[in-house]
């Protein structure tokens, strides 16, 4: 399939997913209380920023964003 065909096929699904995200963020905003320095909310904003990139590996970048850091010294830290 070419780009136009893929877009045509996915458009309504992606439109629905974008709307879900928008409604969810509105829901958080509407809720009572504050989110001072909330790590999860910041992560979501950063992930949404990745969607606007042109890297071609957005899914991988977002997966890494939501991942704990790997230390190649883990075996010595664990004394294994």
């Amino acid at each position: 399939m070419n780009k136009q065909e893929v877009l045509q096929r996915e458009f309504l699904l992606v439109r629905a997913k974008v709307l879900e995200i928008a409604a969810c963020l509105d829901r958080i905003d509407r809720a009572e209380g504050d989110l001072p320095q909330n790590h999860q909310r910041e992560l979501l904003s950063e992930a949404i920023g990745h969607l606007l990139g042109k890297t071609g590996n957005r899914a991988e970048q977002i997966q890494l964003l939501f991942s704990r850091e790997y230390s190649d010294q883990w075996r010595s830290e664990f004394q294994l």
């Binding site: 997966q63 939501f66 704990r68 790997y70 883990w74």
Partner: peptide, 14 residues
């Protein structure tokens, strides 16, 4: 799964 996957997979491969 989730936030532990990348770190855990790298440890396993190690």
């Amino acid at each position: 799964h989730l936030e532990d996957k990348h770190q855990g997979t790298r440890m396993i491969l190690d």
